[in-house]
Write a protein that binds this DNA or RNA. Sequence first.
DNA 1: CCCGATTCCTGTAGGC
DNA 2: TGCCTACAGGAATCGG
Length: 271
Amino acid sequence: MPELPEVETTRRGIAPRLEGQRIAKVTVRERRLRWPVPAGLERKLRGQTVRSIERRAKYLLLHTDAGAALIHLGMTGSLRLVIDQAPPDKHDHFDIAMDSGVILRFNDARRFGSFLWGGAEPSAHPLLAKLGPEPLSEMFNGDYLYRVSRGRRIAIKPLLMNAHVVVGVGNIYASEALFRAGIHPKRAAGRISKQRMEKLALAVQDVLAQSIRAGGTTLRDFYGGDGRPGYFRQELLVYGRDGEPCIRCSAPVRVAVLGQRSTFYCISCQR
DNA sequence: CCCGATTCCTGTAGGC
DNA sequence: TGCCTACAGGAATCGG
């Protein structure tokens, strides 16, 4: 379940081997991803030099002089660097082969990922244009959360997971940040004080930064560009701990379904 | 506009 | 062992 830390870990893993390299060939084996892979994407990229790899929300942007390719990992997507000419495995949907011989290979069993053309101004792409701020930027803070939540009756957890409010926070880190801030996931967003929103914004930033340091969270599918799993799973405090005692107060951690998502929280610490 | 439900998809786990 | 079902959830879209 790649959220921001997993995508950032992937970026850091693959960028050093791709930046400055020329794309020799792009091979798409399966065009039916979350959005159809556009016809002609191979031709647009071939011969271009990868200038930089940027992350925006959960998208990776491969910048070239002709424009940027957009890659989203969806739920089960992963990018790996393949050095030899290893034959593609099941669900290896596309390759970006460099002149150096390195191949960037995308695998995604459930095909919720995407491979798109963002053009010269990718921030104007329809999928990127209306995204909220980056959680690790200065724009994202308690004042901002307080302001955008006024008058809204939605529970705080689905609000945090709404990419139009803030990007990169998925199911795992929303539960973790709310635990760290002591806020009940079902609390109406519009009824949370500015002081508590400040705590929440800091908790979101802390948990994401800590996870990036650990190389992300590997539950099952996620591996970084170097093929190594992330180790933040060991540092999860409530996610996946249904029935276990809270590490802070020993009351049980419970799971509830909120907006069709499993939500983990301490019945005592979170109000 | 707001917000909950639905939808896409396949590997895995649990029940029998 | 094998078959069936439920579940996992990012995020666009639909409908009330």
